[in-house]
Write a protein that binds this DNA or RNA. Structure first.
Lengths: 189, 189
DNA sequence: TCTCAAAACTAACAATTGTTAGTTTAAGAT
DNA sequence: ATCTTAAACTAACAATTGTTAGTTTTGAGA
């Protein structure tokens, strides 16, 4: 693990503040105080407040895109693919909880990069939907409403960042297993 | 249906703006422009920006609290109770989509009312958890991780406000039925 | 027509915002 | 020791913020 640059440190601290108060409510002076420096000094490392948000959100969006591409290229069945998607979300949510909060809550403030983010997000959802449709066609999944299913699973996975920090000792594998069980098999006896 | 007061109109328009940009990014001038008046004129109807958010969020929080109390007093089994919870979320999400967005995204800006909101929320989750535990004890539900189950169902229900506006012709009953099927029975064949 | 209250207005305020310019400090390389 | 450069600083800016004070407009009931 190589040492964190000053810029990376700023992005990390900013993500944490964004998570707690939201992008708009965090001032450059808040961020500077948290870094132990003056607001003007931040500009030796970043170009603007906007750019901080963009760096945080787009890095994660690209992680999801890359992860999804690996999954769809895999030639396993749809259940296996869904399990891989769950793993992907759990992994990113544990590694970058604060950044995910910014992605989920503050993407509307991305301005110039907003359209690009929404495009990546749309593509991700399309791939996810394809997997569900494929599974129903192949008879591996029940024939339920695809849109409601997509929404339901994705809502849970996208909310992981809210829930993970409350559990002190998260076991990545155990969480993914429980989620797979509940999301795929339900809870009814 | 009695006529909307000017204050109610402000709350309704404010909720819509909060949904799109978040509480902090909406200025009193934004809200006034949308109402067709000047910012100062808003203060003939509301006492502060804070108070607008509090009115919006706490009204909904109390709707949930009242709905949950009706459900737990009911003497049906846990599956029926879970279905009633789903109905409650669908109903409120359709009736007050914009307000729910403010509740879910901007509760941290409630200031003096924040603790009260969090208390209502905690109680709601506790009742929800009790129902799940009861269902497992009675053998009506599979013995799965209660916390993950609670989180999973609640994440989906809390995200309804994001998804409902995208579906032009939402049938409340059909949506609730699909959700019950997917959340309770899963999708695996 | 007159009254009166609700609800709009103009003008201004003090504080806070993101950001820039120019300067000083600190520390490793020569 | 000197040089160099990254990274901090002080001071300031123009714009925007929520809000108040005081005034005018509006419209329904007397």
């Amino acid at each position: 693990m190589q040492k964190e640059t000053r810029k990376e440190e700023i992005l990390r601290v900013a993500a944490r503040l964004f998570k707690n108060k939201g992008y708009s409510a965090v001032t450059m002076r808040d961020l500077a105080t948290e870094m132990g420096i003056k607001a003007a000094s931040l500009y030796n490392h970043i170009s603007s407040k906007q750019a901080i948000l963009q760096d945080i959100v787009l890095a994660i969006a690209e992680d999801f895109t890359a992860g999804m591409h690996k999954i769809i290229e895999d030639d396993s069945n749809s259940i296996k693919k869904l399990e891989q998607i769950i793993d992907l979300h759990v992994k990113i949510a544990i590694e970058n909880t604060d950044g995910l909060a910014a992605l989920n809550s503050d993407w509307m403030h991305l301005e110039e990069k907003r359209a690009h983010y929404l495009e990546l997000r749309q593509q991700y959802e399309d791939h996810f939907r394809d997997i569900l449709n494929q599974g129903m066609k192949e008879g591996e999944l029940q024939r339920v409403d695809v849109e409601v299913t997509l929404f339901s699973i994705l809502s849970t996975l996208r909310s992981l960042y809210l829930w993970i920090p409350k559990k002190e000792d998260i076991n990545k594998e155990a969480l993914a297993t429980s989620l797979s069980q509940i999301l795929l098999n339900g809870i009814n006896k």
